[in-house]
Amino acid sequence: MDSLIRIAPGALTIGRPLPWDVFDADGNVLLRQGYVIQTNTQLEQLFERGRFKPRKIERKKEKIQEDQRQRNPFADYADLLATLEATLNAITSEDPSAQKRLLGLARMLERTCQEAPEASLALVHLYSIGPTIHEQILFYGILCHFTARAFGLDEKRTSVLTAAALTANLALVPVADQLNASTRVLTDDQRAVIRKHPHRSIQALTSAGITNKLLLKIIAQHHEQADGSGYPEGLSGTDILPEAEILALSERYVAMITKRAYRNRMTITAARKLIATLGDGKVRPAIPRSLLQVLGEYPPGMLVRLDNNEVGVVTGRAVRARGPFVKAIFGPRGNRYSGTFERDTSVPEYNIQGAEEPEEMPSMDFSLLWGFRN
């Protein structure tokens, strides 16, 4: 099949869910998105035989408003990342299309969040163990969109915040993955790069013709602290935009639940507890409350153990008297189910006993679990 592209070395990682379905050269499905590669042999076989099918989101960006197909965040994931990378490259190269690309990507991401909110939030948690910088940036955009709406920002300000979340760390992209993989203490030069990245990101945006004042102000302030201890200006209190605090908190949450070479990741449960303590003058109290409201007690994409000892994945947050929606994937004795079974967690037998947060996610067919048909 001409539309299939060979998988490049470095595109896949042991212990991480596949970002897309993998096909053989004849177009037959080898592995579904969500399968977790376990060994070097499997990895080499995929590089040898595997192909993937890009969905070409960029070709449709002129028709975003007319495109009525169901948004599937899992099927679109790899192309959202590729479009993000192309957009950031267009900005840094001062391409005339940069602003149009950024607006198109922000609209696409917001529409995906609006039409498939549970699956969009699930991306953050299913791929959180060791994300690349582009994945982290995508997660910031998702969390900012939902938190801004829960906080009460209007549609226009939310859209500008989403675009800011996608570009605020532009200046860190060349070094972020290297920094995350390093086990050494940061050098003075590395610290300088980090502290200057808001200003350098703004420089790149303005050079590319992106001059929205609110967007640039959000980026300039997203590392300020309400107590004046932040950077680069040491602003405090209400001098800091709520949008900047939402972006900062989104980045902090992703950092908490993300594995680094120099530290272990925090569990989602522990991260939620820490966020609940942040209304102490370091941030507007309503902002951490809004993020916690978005996540729910058990966020989509999180694994949980039920009272009958099954293990399932949360596919939807609690609604009214109904508990979180869970699809059981492992039986009470640890056997893997061949199918998936929806459990009503408000029924005593299926009450959630607690979180299951392994260092490596089990293989899952994400689209099937969330009810999408490719």
Rank of each mutant, 00 (worst) to 15 (best):
H222M: 11
L105I: 02
E118G: 01
V36W: 00
N40R: 13
H199W: 02
P242Y: 07
A122E: 01
Y35M: 04
N264W: 04
L249F: 06
H199Y: 07
T211M: 09
G141T: 06
L368Q: 15
L103G: 01
I133S: 15
Y337N: 08
L123K: 09
P300W: 08
G237E: 14
I202L: 10
G331I: 08
N28Y: 10
E66D: 05
H197M: 01
V160G: 01
V175L: 02
P19F: 05
I219K: 12
D79I: 09
G281H: 03
T258Y: 00
D2C: 05
A244L: 03
G209E: 06
A106M: 03
T41G: 09
T13L: 11
L172G: 02
Q136D: 10
T183G: 11
N212K: 12
T167N: 05
Y231E: 04
K273V: 12
K156F: 11
R107I: 14
L102H: 03
A328T: 06
A168G: 04
I37D: 03
E58L: 06
A276S: 15
E357N: 14
Q203K: 06
V311W: 03
H199G: 11
S128T: 13
K60P: 01
E245S: 07
A171K: 06
R149Y: 01
K56E: 13
F52D: 13
P117V: 06
F366Q: 09
V313E: 05
D21S: 07
R49E: 11
Q99M: 09
L291H: 00
Y253T: 09
N28A: 15
I5S: 15
P117D: 13
P348L: 13
E356S: 10
A164V: 04
L241E: 04
N309P: 02
A98C: 05
C113R: 08
D177G: 11
A8V: 09
F139E: 05
R149C: 00
